[in-house]
Design a protein around this nucleic acid. Structure first.
Length: 320
DNA sequence: GTGATTTGACCTTC
DNA sequence: GAAGGTCAAATCAC
């Protein structure tokens, strides 16, 4: 569909880094020519100047990339991320061995990385996992880590897409009453303010929930998110509380906001907010998603258009 | 020791 | 009774 074509958009930091790298490469090419005996254009200040420029470009590009990645890498939510993600299979084997094994233990793929547990700006604690009928993948249950401390009722459910395992559907329930949004997320919000122009708009932001194209946007991390119009009935089966009574109001997240801020308390005002993401970092099988930045940093990235996984976008339509 | 994750068991809803 | 949601003991990493 036409709305896919936007070229998906690198983050501001990424774009800046890309430009800087391109500039550095140009300088390096000139320097190489100089080293090979070519005459130096008058505009250039000599080999030393070129070398300095290359270094400067690289430094700035690295700084830009790091600035773009620090928010997530420094997130408090990642406290146990790396170790935990690196050992799940081992842990499960141990537990399975201790308990005589279990079907669920063998079913879930090894977790590789959890570096972005708090990518939506909140700290979540996993409290359950359930095999869902007619679904190949289990549903994961998270609640706000501050539930005990602040009585925060926010929860979310994450379920892997059957069509494309790299896509996860995240359903938010309840309000955050804890003001627990991470500092990193707050930084992200600041970044978001500066990256609004990177938000992809597909269709009218004020379009009605029915019949309008799904709203897709990418966050600073390049994840592509989709908000869905309705909460799956199965997700609210046991939720008779008022927080899910506002279904007719649909998703309330701001369509202008990158996803990092969409589940914030003000946005999750009551109905379940359903968001699907091509690569929520808190889930297993996300190695390649989480290496996305690495891939980006790799020279293989040459065109912003390559950032968009069009197949995933097509899948988004399946959900609607 | 602390805190997060796992997972079987239990509860609730239909 | 089935299915989904939650609890809590066991387990693990730091």
């Amino acid at each position: 569909m036409a709305l896919i074509a936007t070229g998906a958009t690198a983050s501001p930091a990424s774009s800046m880094a890309s430009e800087l790298m391109a500039q550095g490469r140009e300088s390096a090419a000139v320097l190489e020519a100089l080293l090979h005996g070519a005459s130096l254009p008058p505009a250039h200040g000599g080999a030393h100047a070129l070398a300095a420029e290359i270094l400067r470009c690289c430094d700035r590009a690295l700084a830009a990339l790091r600035a773009g990645g620090d928010a997530e890498s420094s997130s408090p939510g990642t406290k146990r991320s790396k170790p935990a993600t690196a050992q799940p299979a081992t842990r499960r084997r141990r537990r399975a061995a201790a308990s005589g094994g279990g079907a669920a233990a063998a079913a879930e793929p090894a977790r590789v990385e959890m570096a972005r547990t708090s990518e939506d700006g909140f700290l979540w604690r996993k409290y359950g996992q359930k095999e869902i009928k007619n679904s190949k993948h289990p549903r994961l249950y998270y609640r706000c880590s501050y539930k005990d401390d602040h009585g925060c009722t926010a929860t979310k459910q994450v379920q892997q897409s059957e069509e494309d395992p790299s896509i996860y559907v995240i359903t938010y329930f309840g309000d955050h009453t804890c003001s627990c949004q991470t500092a990193a997320a707050m930084d992200d919000d600041d970044d978001d303010e500066n990256s609004q122009h990177f938000v992809i708009h597909f269709g009218s932001a004020t379009a009605s929930r029915s019949g309008s194209p799904p709203l897709l946007y990418d966050d600073d991390d390049g994840d592509v998110w989709r908000e869905t119009a309705a909460t799956p009935p199965s997700s609210r089966q046991s939720r008779s509380s008022p927080e899910v009574d506002g279904e007719e109001s649909g998703v309330k997240m701001s369509k202008e906001e990158p996803v990092d801020s969409c589940p914030v308390p003000s946005a999750v005002s009551s109905p379940a907010d359903v968001v699907s993401c091509s690569s929520p970092a808190m889930e297993p099988d996300l190695l390649r998603c989480l290496n996305w930045d690495d891939d980006f940093g790799d020279s293989s990235f040459v065109d912003a258009d390559e950032f968009m996984n069009f197949d995933e976008i097509d899948l988004f339509q399946i959900y609607s």
